[in-house]
C-alpha cells in the first residue's frame, strides 16, 4: 500500500564523519524523494484532522525535519510522519489555547510568500472545499479515522495507529460516513 514503506530490517547507522559523503548523498536522495511525494498529502491529512492550512504546513515541515534526522531508524515513514504530525498538531493546539499571543504568523519557507495568513492565500482553502466544512462537524475521533481512511489505511491499521480496537474504528467510520452523508444531503448531495 505504501510505496515508501521500507523493510523492517535494521537500517545502517548514518556515518558520522565526512569520509562517508556517499552515504549522506544516498540518505538525502532517499529522503528528498519521500519529501516530494509526501509533504502535500501530509498537509492534507492534517487539514482533514482540523488543522488550519498554514498551521498544517508548519507542523508538516517540523515533522519532516524530525523524519530527516531519524531517517535511518524509521521503517514506515508514511505512517510515521502522520503519527508524529498528529501529536505535534495536538501540542500546537494546546499551546495556542494556553498562549494565544504566540500565534504570530511566522511560517515555514514551504509556503509561498503570498500565502501567509491572508485569506487570499492558503487559508482560503478552508472555504473552498465543502468536504472540510462537513468534516468540521465530526468529533475528533471520527475525523482521525476519516483522515487515515482517506490516505488508504485499513481499519486494523488505523486501530494500531490510534491505539484502539478495530471494531471501534469501524464504528467511528460508520458514524462519520453517516454524518457526512447527512451533511451533504442537506447541501444537495454530491455533484
Amino acid at each position: 500500500m505504501d510505496e515508501h514503506d521500507r523493510s523492517d530490517e535494521p537500517q545502517p547507522t548514518l556515518p558520522a564523519t565526512h569520509a562517508a559523503q556517499d552515504a549522506y548523498r544516498s540518505h538525502d536522495t532517499e529522503f528528498s524523494d519521500f519529501y516530494r511525494h509526501s509533504i502535500v498529502p501530509l498537509i492534507g491529512f492534517l487539514v482533514v484532522l482540523g488543522a488550519r492550512p498554514a498551521d498544517a504546513a508548519d507542523v508538516a515541515q517540523e515533522t519532516m525535519l524530525k523524519a530527516y534526522q531519524d531517517w535511518n531508524t524509521i521503517t514506515h515513514p508514511k505512517a510515521w510522519v502522520r503519527r508524529v504530525a498528529s501529536r505535534a498538531w495536538g501540542r500546537h493546539m494546546a499551546r495556542s489555547h494556553e498562549d494565544p499571543v504566540d500565534q504570530l504568523p511566522e511560517h515555514t519557507s514551504l509556503l509561498h510568500p503570498a500565502s501567509g495568513i491572508e485569506a487570499s492565500g492558503i487559508e482560503a482553502v478552508e472555504q473552498r472545499h465543502t468536504v472540510l466544512q462537513a468534516l468540521a462537524t465530526l468529533p475528533l475521533r471520527q475525523r482521525q479515522v476519516m483522515a487515515w481512511t482517506f490516505d488508504g489505511y485499513s481499519a486494523p491499521e488505523i486501530a494500531k495507529e490510534l491505539g484502539i480496537e478495530p471494531a471501534a474504528v469501524r464504528s467511528s467510520l460508520l458514524k462519520a460516513r453517516r454524518s457526512l452523508t447527512a451533511c451533504l444531503a442537506q447541501e444537495g448531495g454530491p455533484e
Binding site: 519557507s109 492565500g121 472545499h129
Partner: peptide
C-alpha cells in the same frame, strides 16, 4: 474532493524551498 483539496494545497506550496530548508 480529496484530490481537489490536495491540488489546491499544492498550489500554495514551494516544495523545493521546503526541502532545501530541511
Amino acid at each position: 474532493q480529496q484530490s481537489a483539496l490536495i491540488a489546491d494545497i499544492a498550489s500554495h506550496l514551494d516544495v523545493d524551498a521546503g526541502l532545501r530548508e530541511i
